[in-house]
Nucleic acid binder design. Sequence first.
DNA 1: CGTCCCTTTGATTACTGTCAATCGTGGTGG
DNA 2: CCACCACGATTGACAGTAATCAAAGGGACG
Lengths: 261, 261
Amino acid sequence: MEAVTARSTSIRIVPRTQATRAQAAPAPLKTLCSTCHLRDLCLPCGLGGTDVERLDGLMFARRRVKEGQALYREGDKFQFIYAVRSGTFKSGLTLKDGREQVTGFQMAGELLGLDGLANGQHASSATALEDAEICAIPYAHLSELAASSTDLQHVISRLMSREIVREHSLMMLLGSMNAEERLAAFLLNISQRMKARGYSASEFHLRMSRAEIGSYLGMKLETVSRTFSAFQHQGLLEVDKKHVRILDLEGLTRAFETRVQ
Amino acid sequence: MEAVTARSTSIRIVPRTQATRAQAAPAPLKTLCSTCHLRDLCLPCGLGGTDVERLDGLMFARRRVKEGQALYREGDKFQFIYAVRSGTFKSGLTLKDGREQVTGFQMAGELLGLDGLANGQHASSATALEDAEICAIPYAHLSELAASSTDLQHVISRLMSREIVREHSLMMLLGSMNAEERLAAFLLNISQRMKARGYSASEFHLRMSRAEIGSYLGMKLETVSRTFSAFQHQGLLEVDKKHVRILDLEGLTRAFETRVQ
DNA sequence: CGTCCCTTTGATTACTGTCAATCGTGGTGG
DNA sequence: CCACCACGATTGACAGTAATCAAAGGGACG
């Protein structure tokens, strides 16, 4: 897994762990929410035409992030909320001994960086799992705009609340499920999100490694791999490295619902 | 662990698991933020005098919640954010098979119910671990007020973001720590919060059962009990049921930092 | 004084972690 | 062009931690 730094003129290969921060885009493309194909998934979701037009007025800078590059890191000053336009990100905490805890994976239309509001600096880091593109939404401007639109205020609050709810269910997963239930829950979640984006719900490419899945689900990469194999033997799915095809959605749901119901 | 229903005129004992929802307070006391002893911990924290006075104008209803009573449950309509005035709450999800996943414990000055914004109904439930008192803050009124005060908007956003950050670190705990590290982290967290409230940081009463601690930390109650005993044998603390005295804060911190550093 | 619940402790099981080897792929460099 | 290396994934063997099952003590309360 390697990455090309944006800074060097010649193409230079660096391992992902040494990846540099994302640089300011050389060509700062501006983006309009009103014409964005993700508007029903993303920030403008639920907003009226006038509010969306006011979002347009902010002219979010669009930025490319290469695979392995960090969009922001723990401790970085909080200035932007990021909306994923394309590609996939992982977000998480890096422990001082080098190990990481992945706290989420973000796909197109999902927001990144909301944890930065608490203390004015990011509490987590976000890294691209493939070449990606994001909208950088300046929080100061956004909150200015929100001051004159209660609808926008509500949308932002709702998105933050949704993040809290999402983390609740992840805590349930980490706190009270076994390996098979965790992986089943993870795959069903990915499946739903792929479907919501117009992709197949039953066949997709995972962009994250076994180690990253394991970190997210609170298990070791070997256990992730074994559990994939177990599901395959049970006829629930076909796996080949990162390619997954779900054969028995009900069976997988049952594996998940063993405890959740 | 038993509870007295508020509805019945005669005092009737019900097990906590069958506890009824908190009823509307018979005497709706009103509360002022400006004179509250918790104002530096709670919602008004960081707000200027004029904003706090405007919060006063909302005249939050104060409500008593008996031990074992639910303040709200999953699926309840979201109307209020709650601030704990006194007592301790647990919040969490109840699974359909009856088991619960505790997602947090709330002490005086802490907020409850922020997960309700996402869908207009609470995604979790909150239950008093001892007789408690809360301020019920009508969200509609609060967000009306926030429309004319960017400071208040920021405070609310920051509180929600803080909840997200809190859950991140809990996920790290659940995802990558062993039993001793989890319990050490839990005790250090309680210790800090007690200290912030003017209580001893080294000696306190836990209001939650071993099972509730276990649910929160993703381990079984027997393991919680054993780990307490282990800490006691290591001379890190003295435990007698719910009473805890920390003898060696550095040692406990080391037990926690084994992985976190 | 008996019951119920919480807690503690012991014995055993089982799941997942750890350590290690192998395979396949893709990029590197001779 | 091909051998080599690095990396991710898979699988096996074994170890270790925590779960499970079980029993008993201690308070609180009727």
